[in-house]
Design a protein around this nucleic acid. Sequence first.
DNA 1: TCAATGAGTGAGTGCACACTCACATCTACG
DNA 2: CGTAGATGTGAGTGTGCACTCACTCATTGA
Lengths: 190, 190
Amino acid sequence: MSAPTTTRKLSTAEQRREALLIAAMPVFAERGYHAAPTLEIAKAAGISQAYVFRLFPTKAELFAGVCDVARERLLATFRDAAARARTEAGDVLEAMGRAYGELLQRDRDVLLVQLHSQVAAGQEPLIRDAMRRTFRDLYALVARESGAAPEQLTGWFAHGMLCNVMAAIDADQLDEDWARALAGDQKDCA
Amino acid sequence: MSAPTTTRKLSTAEQRREALLIAAMPVFAERGYHAAPTLEIAKAAGISQAYVFRLFPTKAELFAGVCDVARERLLATFRDAAARARTEAGDVLEAMGRAYGELLQRDRDVLLVQLHSQVAAGQEPLIRDAMRRTFRDLYALVARESGAAPEQLTGWFAHGMLCNVMAAIDADQLDEDWARALAGDQKDCA
DNA sequence: TCAATGAGTGAGTGCACACTCACATCTACG
DNA sequence: CGTAGATGTGAGTGTGCACTCACTCATTGA
């Protein structure tokens, strides 16, 4: 099983690992870290449960991997939004906020994984570290791309967190004034 | 077991239920909804596990009860802060923000239960409802006491959510710039 | 004094789940 | 071809947990 002489390809196991992460994300997103059974994840990925543990030694490591995938999606979304805003000479921070709102509509798993990892962080150091990496990279990217002042960035992140929570309790489907006020402006998180 | 003729007292079972909720809160706060075993909760309350289930038919109902206790503590804190701010002619919303920051230091369980209920809300309707009640009452109270405009209230709640998340990952113990920026101003959430 | 009701428990039960292991099959290379 | 190493799995194992049940003891009201 030596590498081909010329082209450098991912090994099959590496491909499997990536596919597994993609398949695991919606399961973790829907059920949370503790309530998501590895058997269901294995089924979603189309492999045996045993092989899940061959690819990731523990469930916590699998989940941390999923967190990293979610982080990458977030970063890519914001990088995209910033680039587009700059070519159109729009406000970068505002564009990123809109992009986040759109992402939450389109790819709810990213949001939910974020939320679940926040609470699992308290119990699994691996997950807490993944969470911190996410904030570190996100903050650096948004700060650099937008050039906004720290207070502005803090407000921006705060609105993002509110969006997450409101989405988690499906507040946008409620016809009450608090829900309209707090969840209504999910589109312009900035 | 008919009621005494004159004074209306809580039944003993009712007292037990309340004591159980108080004892269960730190366990749920530390381990989360799924990871908190009812046996440990029973021990913390000094009763048998069997009796836990006599007092609350399911674990979800027990947790929802704990959420309600946390909600009451939050409401009381804000009511207090508002009253004090008014007698001192200070800004009510700002005082409430400070009070929240202080509460997070003093009674971390309230925060953590909040956080855990947000994710458990996705799976247990009882818990989701408890969560919604919390936001409804909280929003109504803060709006009424402060008289602030909706956008201001939204910003206020958003900062509160950011505080929660930063506290959950112990960001205030990190020496990185994103952590300082996002978790540094936990004291003045307003 | 004696039923009737409620508080409280010890000892389960059944099940779901994280993780393991012995084994099978494929692929690459000499 | 043969074999070494990698991919992959069926069939467990042990454990932890939500929830139950049959039972005891205390209180109360007549």
